[in-house]
Write a protein that binds this DNA or RNA. Structure first.
Length: 459
RNA sequence: GCGGUCAUCGUCUAUCGGUUAAGACACCGGUUUGUGGUACCGGGAAGCAGAGUUCAAUUCUCUGUGGCCGCCCCA
């Protein structure tokens, strides 16, 4: 019997589902690698938004927002045809109008495009731009890696002095430190300019050619397209080869060498915890001279890359603008949050309501809606649960929220134009006239509240 | 793109080739009608999808999908 009933139930269920499935199944989840940012995580996002915006102001950056979608070839040309990002990780699509566009895989190309388009080169130098938002990479998701993720981006245009490199690196470090992540390490390197890098590349390819048998299959491939990337291959045999490979820092032209030397001096002056990593290369083609990455995590040697950047003196011109040096970096918001949680950094807590408004009866219910907005206009943050009927259940909610005062507006009070103020700690309550309510509540919140609750830093 | 691993209420977990699929937390409601934290009572809520094996599958197999981990790469 039960079996049959069950079977019937299932058939009915399936029937419904099949009908739906024929249209297209509705999956109650976002596409792979995308995720919701839930209210419980917002304190971390708030903290990062506030901190990055504050620092951008303090260091003289102006905010810019560019579209999530750009023409595909902007990235192909800017970021580089041969890079992984462009070659296999871009969300490309064709619009109804036939335009070939892509979801931005990073922010700099779009910002550079805007810089050129709007003639920002006429602004007083340096031109500092700050941006933040989602970026998209079709990669295999795992912890700290999503197909939609968020970056904060700082770029400086129009200044080639190494002091800007140092300051930009300092901003990166300041952001991370300000979030409470103490164990930051900056890795820096110089990959030279167009001319000396070419010479160096030839040298490197020659060297690699001589050790070709010892390289992994991937690296044999990389030799052709992007020999620099062999240097940071994680394969044991490759890193052995890389260890004795000629290093770009040793083959810089005079200008680049001086630039790098100055940068290091500035960094010393700033007392930033940096190390030179001759293997550091970065995956985007537009970099020249300075490249750097920001790492966090020490204990148990588990490290994670929080962000990186570098100088890109050739990008603007390559995209068709008037030659302009530039340097910038991006930080990954999701990774910053992982680190914040790991080191138990305190997130930002928005103010919580300290007053609850309870209502009872039809007349009071109507009046409470207006009273609520009256309180809001006076800056009194109030909670409510208007949909509930019983006073009991409303008080339960008030208690759960942890408010200090509950205002009770019942049938009787509504007629008398009064409100009951109940102190949730002592339980004492008093009846006051509606006109005096706001002032009295304000006064009470100022005085009676030794009862505060603070952030317990959960999560 | 490759490899590994996992998939049961909102969450955490249990059980089972045939069961009303159990519990805890959370949520909602009630304990005599206008008063909260405790207690008691009650309620809603799940087998990722598809195919196969079987008299019978949530359970076994395969595929897909998704999470996590490693590689690659990066943020």
């Amino acid at each position: 019997m039960a079996k049959i009933a069950k079977k019937i139930k299932k058939m009915v269920k399936n029937k419904g589902k099949k009908a739906e499935a024929q249209k297209e199944p509705l999956l109650l989840q976002p596409p792979r690698g995308m995720k919701d940012i839930l209210p419980e995580d917002q304190p971390y996002w708030d903290h990062i938004r506030r901190t990055t915006e504050r620092l951008s102001r303090e260091y003289g950056f102006m905010r810019i927002d560019t579209p999530l979608v750009e023409f595909s070839n902007l990235f192909a040309r800017g970021v580089g045809e041969g890079t992984d990002i462009v070659e296999k990780e871009m969300y490309n699509f064709v619009t109804k109008g036939g335009d070939k566009v892509a979801l931005r895989p990073e922010m700099t190309a779009g910002i550079a495009r805007a810089y050129i388009q709007h003639g920002m080169n006429v602004l007083p130098k340096p031109i500092k731009l700050f941006s933040t938002g989602p970026v998209y990479r079709y990669d295999r998701p795992q912890e700290g890696r999503y197909r939609e993720f968020h970056q904060v981006n700082y770029d400086v245009f129009g200044e080639q002095d190494a002091i800007l490199d140092a300051q930009v690196i300092q901003v990166a470090a300041r952001v991370v430190q300000s979030l409470g992540i103490k164990s930051v390490q900056i890795q820096v390197n110089s990959i030279g300019c167009a001319t000396c890098r070419k010479e160096y590349k030839d040298l490197l390819v020659n060297y690699l050619e001589s050790k070709k048998q010892k390289l992994c299959a991937d690296c044999k491939n990389r030799m052709e397209h992007n020999p620099l990337r062999v240097l940071d291959c994680k394969e044991d045999k490759c890193s052995q080869v890389a260890a004795t490979a000629p290093q770009s820092v040793d083959h810089l032209c005079d200008e680049c060498r001086i630039h790098f030397k100055c940068l290091l001096e500035y960094l010393d002056e700033l007392e930033l915890p940096y190390v030179i990593n001759p293997q550091l290369v970065r995956g985007l083609d537009y970099y020249s001279k300075t490249v750097f990455e920001v790492w966090s995590g020490d204990e148990e040697g588990r490290k994670s890359a929080l962000g990186g950047g570098g100088r890109y003196d050739g990008l603007i011109k390559m995209l068709g603008g008037e030659q302009a040096p530039a340097i910038g970096f991006g930080l990954g918001v999701e990774r910053l949050i992982i680190e914040m949680k790991r080191v138990q950094a305190k997130p930002y807590r928005a103010p919580k309501p300290r007053v609850f408004l309870a209502q009872l009866g039809d007349l009071a219910k109507k009046k409470s809606l207006k009273l609520f907005s009256e309180l809001e206009k006076n800056g009194i943050l109030t909670a409510e649960s208007f949909g509930r009927g019983s006073l009991k259940s409303q008080l339960r909610v008030a208690d759960k929220i942890g408010v200090e005062l509950t205002l009770i507006l019942g049938q009787k009070e509504a007629l008398d134009k009064t409100v009951i103020i109940k102190n949730m700690v002592s339980g004492v309550q008093e009846i006051v006239s509606t006109e005096k309510l706001v002032d009295l509540v304000k006064k009470k919140l100022k005085t009676d509240n030794v009862v505060t609750y603070h952030d317990n830093g959960s999560h």
